[in-house]
Each structure stands twice: as C-alpha cells, then as structure tokens.
Design a binder for these strands. Structure first.
Length: 932
DNA sequence: ACGCTCACG
DNA sequence: GACGTACGTGAGCGTA
C-alpha cells in the first residue's frame, strides 16, 4: 500500500466544476469534427489540467492530488433552505454531455476523480483539506471561488489557477474585510444572490465586515443587535436574525463530509502516456495530443476527421479462454480485484441469478472483468443440486457471504470515478438496487450496439460476441438444461458456473472496447450518451415502482366475460349446426367457407382461410350472423385471456403491484417495448375493453395522472417535411384532420361532415406510415382507384410531403440508414432490395424518422423527469409511447401536472427548436380510466 | 416453434 | 404490368 499521509505531504484539491464552467465560457463552442459531439469545455479542461500538471513554478509541488466535482444539483443544503441555488439555470445542453467526459479526462491524466451524492464539491474539498491538515500535512485548493476562502488558515492555502496567484490570509482580508475564520459571518450577513443565500437585506460585504469587526463574531452581533446605532440597520438585524442564521449554515463548510477515499490513495502518479494520448486523440484535440505525446515521449496516433468505417486495428488480445478465470472464495482475493478495478478505472460486471425476473430472482453470483482475459466469478448463492425432504437445498460450502461481498463492492460500484460496464445493465442495476447499491456511472454494450446497429440485428450478448468477437459463448442450456427439468442457476455446480459467468464479463468488457471507439466514428455518441444510457436508471426505477392493480375488479369482469362467452358459444354452435372450437381459425374457416359456402379467399403459406376481423366484418356486413357473433366472442375472449385473467398473475407477492419490464432496444425506431406483462397495449378503443383500465389504481391518498402528447407524430412530420399549411394549423391550434379535409375537398372546417374528416384522418396517418393506394383503400373500405385519387390530391395540396418521402428514401438508399431530428440512427438494410420486400423497407424508412423522433422526445422528457419532480410526492410509473403515467399524492396532482407538462412540452429543446408547438393533454383520477 | 389474431401507439 | 402492402410492438392460442 501507499505510505501514510502525514507530515511532509502536500495535497492539491482541484475544483473540477469551476474548471469546467470556466473552460466552457472561455472557449467558443467547439465540436468534435467526426461526429459533432460538443467538446469545447473538455478541451479547455484538458488544457488547464495539462498546464497544471506541467507547471512547476516554485509553489510547493503536490505529493497528492485530486479533482473534485459537484455531483448533482440537489444537496443537503436544499433541506435547510429549499431555495438554495434554486434559480440557478440548468447547465447548457451542449455542456451536459461534457460532464462525464471531463471525468474521463481527469482519469486519463491519472488524477483521482472525486464526487459524492448530496454534497457539493466545496464540502468535499473542505473535508479533505481538514483531513490533510489533521494528518499533519498541508493542502492547496486550486480554485478562485470565494466560498472556499473560509478554509484558508494554517496548513491550507488557495491558488487561483488563472492568475496563478496564491490566496492567503491577507488576500482574504482584502476581499472580505475579515480574516478567513470570520468569512462565513460576513457571507451570512451579506448573502449571495448568485446562490440564493438570503443574508440580511440591505447589508453588503462592506457593512457586514464593519459589523463583524466591531462585535467580533456573528452570534455576538445578533445578541447585541439592539445596541446598533443606525435604526434601520438595527431593525434589519433583529427582524432577519433567523434568516441570517440559516444563511450562515448555507455558506459554512465543515469537515464532516464523509470521504469515500483515503488521502493515501491520492498519491500523485505520472500520467500513463499511452492512455492520456489515446484519450486526447479520441477527443480529436490535435494540438494538445501532439504536445502531450511529445513531452511524455509517446507516439501520437493520427487523428482522422472521418475515420474509415472499417474497424480500427484492434490491439492484440488474449483469446477468450473459459478455463483461465478465477473463482473468488475469500475476501483477500476480492480485495485484490477491487484494487484492480480502482487501478483501471472501469469494470465489466455481470450478475447471475435464479431467474429472469429481476424483481423476484435472487443473486447467485457476480462476475467481474477488468481487462480482456482478466475476469473472475464470485459465487455467493449456489446450492446443492438435490432438495432435501422439505424442499430446501443446502448452500454449497466455500462461498463468500453475499452481504459481505456487496458491502465490499459497494464503494467502487457507486464511485463516480469508476465506470461500470454491463450488457443489458438495467437488469444488473435492478438486481443490485434491491440490495441498496445504485451503480453509477454506467456503460452498456447492448445500448452501444443499439445506437450503432438498430435495424441491422439484435443486441443480445451471444449474438454480439459472435458477430464482433468471433466467439461463441457457452450456451446457458449447457448448464441448466431445457424444458421441464431445467435447473435454476443456483443449482449449477460452481466449477461449471464460473467459466460461463466470468466469460460473460470478459466478453462484455471486450465488446465495450470494441464499441467505444465506434460510437464517435459512426456519429452516434450523442445518441448513446443522451438518449440510451440515461434511460437505464430511469426505467429501472419505474419498473421497480410498479403500478397497483385491483384484482377483484378484474376477477368480476372475468366472470362476466365467461358467462357472455358461454352464451355466444351456444349461439354460434347453433348457427353453425355443429359444435366446434371457435378459437381455432382453422376450424372456423372450414365452417365458414366449406360448410356454409361463404365467399372468402385462401391465405398465406399454410393455405388456410383467413378469418381475420377484416374478413369477418365484411361477412357480417353482408348480413351473416355467425361471423358477427364470432367477432363478439373473439373480442371478449381476448379481453379475458390476455387481460382480466393474466394481469392478476403478475402481481408481485411482496409489493402487491405489477412490475412490467421495458426493453430499450426492443423496437428499431427508438420506441420502448414492454413485456411481462405488456402494459403498453391495455385496451382503450372499445368501451368494454376500456373498463380494464379501471383496475389500474392508485393507493389510498394517491391519484394516477396521465399526460400525453397530442398528435406528436403529425407535428414532427409538419416540422421535418416543412409543410407550411400543417405548421400553421398546429400553431393556430385548429383541428388538424378537419383542416386536411378542408384543403383536400374544398369544404369549410365549420360544420364538417364527420365522414369526410374520418377519411382525412386516415390519410394523415397513412402518410406517416408510407401510404399506398391499396392500404388506404382497405383501411377506408373504398375502391382502390378512389383511395389513389385521395392520395394524389393530398400530394398536390401538400407537395412538401412527397419531397420529404423521396428525400428520405434516397438518403436511406445512399447511406443505408435514416436519422431522426436528434441524430438517432436507424439502419435500413433491404432498402436496395428488389421485389415485394422493397416496398416494406421503403415504408419503414419513411416512418422511422418520424416515429423515432417522437420516441426521442419522450425519452428526453423521461430522463429529465426524476429531477424535475424530485420535490413532489410523485413517481413516474409507465410510458406508453406518447403518454406518461404517474402516481401522486392527492394534494400534489395539480402541481405535478404543471411540472410534468412543462418538461414534456419543452423536451425537444434546446437540441431542436421545433417550428410547431408540442401540446400535452393531462388527466387525473383514482384509476387509469379516469386519468386518461 | 410458428402462424394467426388482436390489443396498443 | 405484377408483385404485395399501411408503421412499430407483445401475448395467447391452436397447430404442427
């Protein structure tokens, strides 16, 4: 280990957040050439760090150093005084993605990177300065922040990095009129408008210093306020004594902030030349890369403005060898791995569990990887294969205790300076969150693949390993078997489990190394960092929250449905003249078309008759009763089996709620999908189905709130295709379908025939889907020629739409992908095919940027939502593509609606300034039916 | 395992 | 002129 921190040691504490903001404002908004990622602040930050590392101007050189960052805007000070820093504007959009990069930069410089949830950088700096002094060493704070000046004293000084000027007691007196030990008293009186520290009205630094000089300290002053001669000043101090005391607590930095690292671990290390140069060249900082390379004697890789699409030459890597992994069975070995993680600054992690449902499964083991081929498995929950008489299985000997392992790993898993890499991180995040560990920061190879390859292939690990590493993973089936006799992972022998599990971590790490440089090269860094990765904790928390349902409501409905179905069954069998399985399309087809001789065509490969609702509706319209009854029966059967019967089986035994799972990569367009159960397809279109939503309820004292975007896809179309008529209609807030009908058929919007409006609506939707005459004719049940005539008229009236469609398809053909307004990339393989498949690919390409942009917008809203509603007694529970559902305490529903609406309506900004407004409708009630 | 049907946006 | 077709999902059921 490092030597103890003590006499002769000198600690430098660099105020990272101040560095970032200064760099951001000092420099023009630079972007990375290859992909447009904003990097101005990172560039300035790196330059400052480099200058700092290089400078040796006689000021005591540090033996230890750390860069300290603010972690989040909410700190314990908000509990003391809610308005603290409240009016502070959000950091600019182009700065935000740079925050994590500045952490990366710090690590690349081989300097410790420190931040703590709930504390400001200033608090950590104070605690570390105290610790350094208490240990007999000294500290220098690299900052010019006046709030830190109170810390100056014996053994602690400050250095303004811009002026390169030392700030000591005299400089503080110059600024505050008091010495450092009384600075907080002056600040408490004077307040600080920038941070919203109230202080005493009408008293500034000058007056405050005068008062403190006269009375010695703040408490004495307040006690003896009555003696003050000036009447106004006297009254102010008496009236605002409490406010002044609060102000003092706000500005005071104490030594008690918990530190998550030891001073010893901050020993100054020479930057690893290769790593630093690699980082700088990835950022494409040409000048600095060359300079650093020269000074440190490393080779500067050539920076390409537009890297070739073929994969860069991969460094030599050890082959994947499942027998080479370590099984960790004692704490000393675990500590070794933790040290290795701290050394590399990243770790690939994978959890093994007893099942796929992360709300119910138990942890069986964890695997870690720090470098290719360097991985381990930590078994914690393996049991002997056979059950005993009581169905209990014995825990296998020689495993570490789960809680002990997690306690040891927690600091590093929550350390903002250590990147946690996973494949489908949401799963592992939830597993660990159930044990009180909230991993951050995160990288997810599945999401990286999605950002790069959506539309091309799926993003499961086995598939990625095969495609990108040329490696076939050990199939899980080899361990647990298949079918009825399938084991759970806990029952797998440790010597079989370890190679499999550790391999997963190893593969994940290698995939991360493979994908990381491709993100910037393929220009999807911003998508990954702003639209994919931040979804992990947001969705994990929604899923863990779950939504309450009332099983009794569903059971009653189910009984009613059962009776109705029995009744209809009798009727249908009577009409058919025989008994048959109505649920079998095959048997139904035979009854309808063979036995009864109705007209209807054959379908598809199987040669079976189609009995889809379309067909049955046509038959019913011709006056046939049987198909009409079958339609009724099917509707009820669907509601019963898929909803009223199935939903209660998903109620979690402990939470009493239903926890869906969202797939971030489930849809090609950026939409989420929802499984087990799918809560994105709960009925609403028919009255009977809609009632199922009454079973989705809020607990006593709470309400459900639903907010949904109105016509978001048409609005996006209006914007991206730049259609003046459509944009104007949205700006004026008029009925968009009526407007379309009016334009097409030349009828006034007032008193419009509902049928005409319906047709226009169908066309509007058709456009979004890549309209065809055939599709429209079928949807509207009108002759194909008529439908085609509608479409022709539509394109005449709105020529910009055709231009947009043609351009989108042309882009797709040329690039092999389309992009959304926010830069999401959706690949379009098959766009250059010929034959029938080409039509489908073409329509998908037209639809993807529209559906995808809508998905991007609601993702942006969701990512901002937790912070926005943090102070409300409310939780976000569900997302249904253009709708968000919340649970909120009765008294705060209105406030939640206000807040969430603002976030949703402004979600595109500031990345994209839409030329049409986004409008959000809101509702609330005791259940989802009422809220909608 | 796969196709059909149908629930949603 | 023919091909086929609205875009994106997931679940339950019947059939092979």
């Amino acid at each position: 280990m490092d030597d103890a921190f003590g006499k002769g040691c000198h600690l430098h504490l660099i105020d990272g957040s101040a560095f970032i903001f200064r760099a951001y404002h000092a420099l023009p908004p630079l972007t990375r050439k290859s992909d447009g990622l904003p990097v101005g602040a990172v560039a300035g930050f790196c330059n400052m760090l480099w200058r700092y590392v290089q400078t040796d101007d006689g000021h005591t050189a540090p033996t230890h150093a750390a860069v300290i960052f603010d972690h989040s805007s909410k700190t314990f000070r908000n509990d003391i005084y809610p308005a603290y820093k409240a009016q502070r504007p959000e950091p600019p959009e182009d700065l935000r993605p740079q925050f994590p990069l500045t952490r990366d930069a710090t690590r690349a410089f081989n300097i410790a990177c420190i931040e703590t949830q709930g504390y400001e950088a200033d608090d950590i700096i104070a605690a570390m300065a105290c610790a350094a002094r208490d240990a007999g060493g000294t500290a220098t704070i690299i900052s010019s922040d006046k709030d830190l000046m109170q810390l100056i004293g014996d053994g602690v000084d400050m250095l303004d990095p811009i002026k390169n000027k030392l700030i000591g007691r005299d400089e503080v007196f110059e600024k505050f009129g008091v010495f450092p030990d009384r600075v907080v008293d002056v600040q408490a009186l004077a307040g600080d408008p920038v941070d919203n520290v109230p202080g005493a009205p009408g008293i500034g630094i000058k007056t405050a210093a005068l008062l403190i000089q006269e009375y010695g300290d703040l408490e004495t002053l307040l006690d003896r306020a009555a003696e003050i001669k000036q009447p106004k000043r006297r009254q102010t101090l008496i009236d605002h004594a409490e406010q002044i005391r609060i102000s003092k607590r706000l500005v005071t930095l104490d030594c008690d902030t918990p530190l998550e690292v030891t001073l010893e671990s901050l020993a100054v290390q020479r930057p690893d030349a290769e790593r630093l140069v690699a980082f700088l060249s990835e950022m494409e900082f040409r000048t600095l890369t060359n300079r650093v390379a020269e000074v440190l004697g490393a080779e500067a890789p050539a920076i390409q403005a537009a890297p070739a699409s073929d994969a860069p030459a991969a460094p030599e890597q050890p082959a994947i060898d499942a027998s080479a992994y370590e099984t960790v069975t004692d704490m000393a070995a675990l500590e070794h791995w933790i040290a290795a993680i701290r050394e590399t600054g990243h770790v690939a992690i994978d959890t093994e569990t007893t099942g796929l449902d992360e709300m119910r499964a138990d942890l069986v083991g964890l695997s870690l990887a720090v470098a290719p081929g360097r991985a381990c498995y930590i078994p914690v929950g393996h049991v002997a294969g056979g059950d005993d008489l009581f169905g209990q299985s014995a825990r296998v000997e020689g495993q570490l205790d789960l809680e002990q392992v997690l306690a040891a790993l927690k600091p590093v898993l929550e350390d903002p300076g250590v990147l946690k890499i996973g494949q489908n991180m949401k799963y592992d995040w939830k597993m660990l969150a159930r044990h009180g560990i909230e991993m951050t920061p995160l990288a997810d190879t599945m999401l990286m693949s999605y950002a790069l390859n959506a539309g091309t292939h799926n993003h499961g690990m086995d598939e990625l390993a095969e495609r990108y590493l040329g490696h076939k993973c050990i199939p899980i089936k080899e361990l647990i078997g298949t079918g009825k006799s399938q084991l759970n992972f806990a029952q797998v022998a440790i010597d079989k489990a370890a190679p499999y599990a550790a391999e997963d971590a190893d593969v994940t790490l290698r995939l991360w190394q493979h994908f990381a440089p491709m993100l910037p090269a393929q220009k999807v860094s911003t998508t990954y960092h702003t639209l994919e990765r931040p979804m992990i904790p947001v969705l994990a928390q929604m899923e863990m929250a779950g939504i309450r349902i009332d099983p009794d409501v569903l059971r009653r409905m189910s009984n009613v449905f059962a009776q109705k179905m029995a009744q209809l069954e009798d009727e249908i069998h009577g009409l058919a003249g025989q008994s048959f399985n109505i649920g079998s399309p095959k048997q139904l087809g035979e009854i309808l078309f063979d036995k009864m001789g109705l007209s209807g065509g054959k379908q598809g490969k199987t040669g079976a008759f189609s009995t889809s609702a379309d067909v049955l509706e046509d038959l019913a319209a011709e006056g046939h009763d049987l198909p009409a009854r079958v339609l009724d029966w099917r509707q009820i059967a669907k509601l019963k089996s898929t909803y009223t019967d199935a939903l209660p089986t998903y109620v979690h035994p402990e939470t009493g709620r239903v926890h869906t799972s969202y797939s971030i990569t489930g849809a090609q367009t950026g939409r989420l999908s929802s499984t087990e159960p799918n809560l994105q397809n709960i009925p609403i279109r028919t009255e009977e189905g809609r009632r199922i939503r009454q079973a989705f309820i809020a607990p006593e004292g709470y309400r459900l709130v639903s907010l949904d975007y109105s016509q978001i896809e048409l609005r996006i179309l209006a914007h991206v295709a730049d259609i003046p008529a459509l944009k104007q209609a949205f700006r004026e807030g008029i009925d968009i379908h009526a407007m379309t009908a009016s334009q097409m058929f030349g009828v006034p919007v007032e008193g419009m025939d509902p049928m005409i409006r319906r047709q226009a609506k169908a066309i509007n939707f058709g456009v979004i889907y890549g309209i065809s005459g055939f599709g429209l004719s079928r949807n509207l049940r009108i002759p194909r020629a008529e439908a085609q005539a509608f479409i022709d008229t539509y394109f005449e009236r709105f020529p910009e739409i055709r231009a947009y469609m043609d351009k989108t398809v042309a882009d797709a053909k040329q690039d092999g992908y389309v992009t959304t307004l926010f830069g999401r990339r959706i690949n379009t393989p098959g766009i250059n095919q010929s034959g029938p498949a080409a039509g489908g690919a073409r329509r998908a390409a037209i639809n993807a940027p529209i559906q995808g942009a809508a998905a991007d917008i609601i993702r942006r809203a969701m990512i901002r939502m937790p912070d926005a509603i943090a102070d409300l007694p409310a939780r976000m529970l569900l997302q249904v593509h253009d709708e968000l559902v919340f649970e909120v305490r009765d008294d705060a529903a209105a406030q939640l609606i206000d807040t969430a609406r603002i976030i949703m309506e402004a979600a595109a900004e500031p990345s994209v300034r839409l030329s049409v407004p986004l409008v959000v409708d809101a509702g609330q009630g005791a259940n989802w039916a009422e809220a909608h």
